Computed example of a mutant assay.
Amino acid sequence: MTTRCPCGLGDPYDACCGPFHQGRRKAPTAEALMRSRYSAFALGHEDYLLATWHPSTRPTSVDLDPDQRWTHLEILSRTDGTPFQTTGTVEFRAHYRWQGQRDVLHENSRFVREDGAWHYLSPV
């Protein structure tokens, strides 16, 4: 059985965010990077999160809570962020469960593309 990717597109993980997490491909758009970062949170890929965080705002470490379970992602809007642009934003809701309670992280994130790679910069 093929595991579906947590990013919400419905594709198998190995054909969706898996190649990004494994370093075989780079996310072509800001939204693709946002989705791959959500999947990295859901799957516990701390190294990928750090690698795709812009150096100017990157924390020294990411400590994911094993009790936090990411359940689904909603992309609400996007501006720019195409393969032909260098900046973009993605507004999203990331739903999760923690200590038996449902909650949501709502953010409009800024992304920049440098040297052909998209990076998460910060909330708007």
Results as ranks from 00 to 15, higher is better:
residue 1 M to Q: 12
residue 1 M to E: 14
residue 3 T to Y: 09
residue 3 T to I: 11
residue 3 T to K: 08
residue 4 R to H: 11
residue 5 C to M: 10
residue 6 P to V: 09
residue 7 C to M: 01
residue 8 G to I: 00
residue 9 L to G: 12
residue 9 L to K: 12
residue 10 G to M: 02
residue 11 D to H: 14
residue 13 Y to A: 13
residue 13 Y to V: 09
residue 14 D to C: 09
residue 15 A to H: 13
residue 15 A to V: 11
residue 16 C to L: 05
residue 17 C to S: 11
residue 18 G to C: 08
residue 19 P to I: 08
residue 21 H to I: 05
residue 22 Q to I: 05
residue 24 R to N: 11
residue 24 R to S: 14
residue 25 R to L: 15
residue 26 K to N: 13
residue 28 P to L: 12
residue 28 P to I: 10
residue 29 T to H: 02
residue 30 A to L: 07
residue 30 A to S: 13
residue 31 E to P: 05
residue 33 L to V: 01
residue 33 L to M: 04
residue 33 L to Y: 06
residue 34 M to Q: 06
residue 34 M to L: 12
residue 35 R to C: 12
residue 36 S to F: 09
residue 36 S to M: 04
residue 37 R to E: 10
residue 37 R to K: 09
residue 39 S to Y: 09
residue 39 S to E: 08
residue 41 F to G: 01
residue 41 F to R: 03
residue 41 F to T: 01
residue 42 A to K: 06
residue 44 G to Q: 00
residue 45 H to A: 09
residue 46 E to Y: 00
residue 47 D to L: 10
residue 47 D to H: 12
residue 47 D to C: 06
residue 47 D to Q: 14
residue 48 Y to G: 02
residue 48 Y to E: 00
residue 49 L to A: 01
residue 49 L to P: 00
residue 51 A to C: 05
residue 51 A to I: 03
residue 53 W to T: 11
residue 53 W to G: 05
residue 54 H to G: 10
residue 55 P to A: 13
residue 55 P to M: 06
residue 56 S to Y: 03
residue 56 S to W: 02
residue 56 S to L: 11
residue 58 R to S: 04
residue 58 R to I: 06
residue 58 R to G: 12
residue 58 R to L: 10
residue 59 P to F: 03
residue 61 S to E: 14
residue 61 S to F: 07
residue 65 D to W: 03
residue 66 P to T: 08
residue 71 T to N: 00
residue 72 H to V: 06
residue 72 H to Q: 12
residue 73 L to N: 07
residue 75 I to N: 12
residue 77 S to H: 11
residue 78 R to H: 08
residue 78 R to G: 11
residue 78 R to I: 10
residue 79 T to R: 10
residue 80 D to L: 10
residue 80 D to A: 15
residue 81 G to R: 07
residue 83 P to D: 13
residue 85 Q to G: 05
residue 86 T to G: 14
residue 87 T to G: 01
residue 87 T to F: 00
residue 88 G to W: 02
residue 90 V to I: 04
residue 92 F to D: 00
residue 92 F to L: 12
residue 92 F to K: 02
residue 93 R to L: 11
residue 94 A to H: 05
residue 95 H to W: 11
residue 95 H to P: 06
residue 95 H to K: 06
residue 96 Y to T: 05
residue 96 Y to S: 03
residue 96 Y to N: 04
residue 96 Y to R: 03
residue 97 R to K: 12
residue 98 W to A: 13
residue 98 W to R: 14
residue 102 R to W: 07
residue 102 R to Y: 09
residue 103 D to S: 15
residue 103 D to I: 04
residue 103 D to C: 05
residue 106 H to M: 07
residue 106 H to I: 11
residue 107 E to C: 03
residue 107 E to V: 04
residue 107 E to K: 01
residue 107 E to R: 02
residue 110 R to T: 14
residue 110 R to W: 06
residue 114 E to K: 09
residue 115 D to A: 15
residue 115 D to I: 03
residue 118 W to Q: 03
residue 121 L to P: 02
residue 121 L to W: 07
residue 124 V to W: 08
